[in-house]
Design a binder for these strands. Sequence first.
DNA 1: CGATAATTTGAGACGTTTCAAAGCGGGTGG
DNA 2: CCACCCGCTTTGAAACGTCTCAAATTATCG
Lengths: 249, 249
Amino acid sequence: MSSSEVETTPPGMVSRSECGVPFSDASVHLRRVLKAHMHGYRAETILKFEGEDSAAVYCVQTGWLAVSKSMANGARQIIDVILPGEIIDPYSANGHTSSVQIEALSYTTIAVVPRAVWSRLEDSDPELRHTETTTIAASLSRMSERMLRLGKGTAESRIAYAMIELCMRLGAIGECNNGAFHLPLTQQGLGDFVGLSAVHVCRTLRRLSRSGIISTEDHMDVVIHDLDALADVAGVDPERLRGEIIVTR
Amino acid sequence: MSSSEVETTPPGMVSRSECGVPFSDASVHLRRVLKAHMHGYRAETILKFEGEDSAAVYCVQTGWLAVSKSMANGARQIIDVILPGEIIDPYSANGHTSSVQIEALSYTTIAVVPRAVWSRLEDSDPELRHTETTTIAASLSRMSERMLRLGKGTAESRIAYAMIELCMRLGAIGECNNGAFHLPLTQQGLGDFVGLSAVHVCRTLRRLSRSGIISTEDHMDVVIHDLDALADVAGVDPERLRGEIIVTR
DNA sequence: CGATAATTTGAGACGTTTCAAAGCGGGTGG
DNA sequence: CCACCCGCTTTGAAACGTCTCAAATTATCG
């Protein structure tokens, strides 16, 4: 995290709130702490390796993060994707090593807050603790949905579900207009997310496209044309899903 | 959860500590609260349905729980398995509905503590909060390992990993002797856990058996004969894995 | 505009599922 | 106590979905 680290947020790059979405109503103190730990990272920067020690909480302000793991042969599975306004604290049972890799999928600005500082913040601000536990609950719910489809779903249902999940999460932060949104992922990357080869992602996307349910252009600009049909393919009830994976404030 | 609920813990059924493993050093007050909410459930009892409201924390004292989700066609995926000494609080982003089903895989005794009571306990006992967050971290780590194999692993690596994970977790509570342990799952159930059909679980188990790595008898009495070979098939480093998924106290 | 990466499509290989039937085992009722 | 039954395991054979390999096409970036 040295050479690719950028010191300051580029001028002009501003998200909807100065400190990220879930912190829009945050205390002055919290805002100040977040601002003091803000960093910018280029796409493809690896912030944390599998097995590495971890002692900081990542509060994403802008950009996408991928949480992933890899097999010995190099095959990568994206365990989760972290969007602006979300928090991730990568540690495991022993309390200090990360069992996952964390990397930037796009240019990203993140408050990297040392865990000691963070827990003091939480002690003084019960709201913040509630925000974090809710964020974790949302993450667990969407991971469960994806696990279900990894284990029992078809290629179509995996992709359909991923599109719905991302569309909903992006919608909550104003980054999805009428079912249109941008994915900073190649088809290979999307395959790593849904457990398919890049080639099969392509075929599946085209099939959904031909049936008029979604369309894609230029490096993953997605438009969902028929949410009901897509939800049907995915096997979800959109409104129930929204309650389970979207944090409202 | 009415007809199959059993009112009292059967006499003579005692785990290694009166209140479950992680609570062996718990305060008198905590022990009393847990005891007051203890219930027994027969195998196959469904404690919570997908989408149902949930307002209690489950502290497992004895027996196994499955956390699962199902597709419209009835196919079930076991998202996680909860063992004695572990805690689960099934809620999602909206704070009150469970996105998963919770069921007993064997006769189980559980303290079902209302969330209001639980959070008061946590406020008065920082140790307890730490125990819960660590439990969640461990759960996330093992879910990540399984997701990786669901997405990118072979049938052999999925089963091998599951055996290692369960062996380690059972070892931590003294329920695995020299690599020998009992799984309260049929091959169908194991298939639901690792994302394979029952038939292919059978074939894979026999292949591992024939190569002398593990053996199985009578409804899932498993013995791991060669942990290194099994870890190799699973693609894990046992000691690193232990640190990531086993909570030590 | 050339070089390089990403997408698209085809064809065949591979691993897993499904369907089917036979064996085993434990529990129940006659 | 035996016979029967039901659920679980085992095995085979064929179908299916996804992956791999390969080549053509299209975008992207310097």
